[in-house]
Amino acid sequence: MGHLDKEYIKKLAHQIMIDVNDQEIEELQTDFAHLLSQMQLLQEVDTTGVEPMVYPFEQEVCYLREDHVDHCITQEEALKNVKEVCLGHVKLPKVVK
């Protein structure tokens, strides 16, 4: 993670589709540098032979949902928040050339 240069921040921002200006990039660089240095502290802990822990509870579950239709919403409900509807579809600006 030693490559927090301007290009990298821009690339990340582009991937999550936000715009950042030069000032914001600088601020992000400072914040990230701070965060990363804190993370460095963790590196000092010896984790040899320790399985990474992903979930707060390590208890396995066994629940699987039965394959029955239980809940379906109407087209009207599905499209309620949609800006532009066309023939029951969500309409977007063209995403391919």
């Binding site: 066309c86 579809h89 969500v90 309409k91 600006p93 063209k94 995403v95």
Partner: peptide
């Protein structure tokens, strides 16, 4: 031509 339609 006018855009992209999505069916979920």
């Amino acid at each position: 031509d006018s855009g992209t339609l999505i069916d979920f």
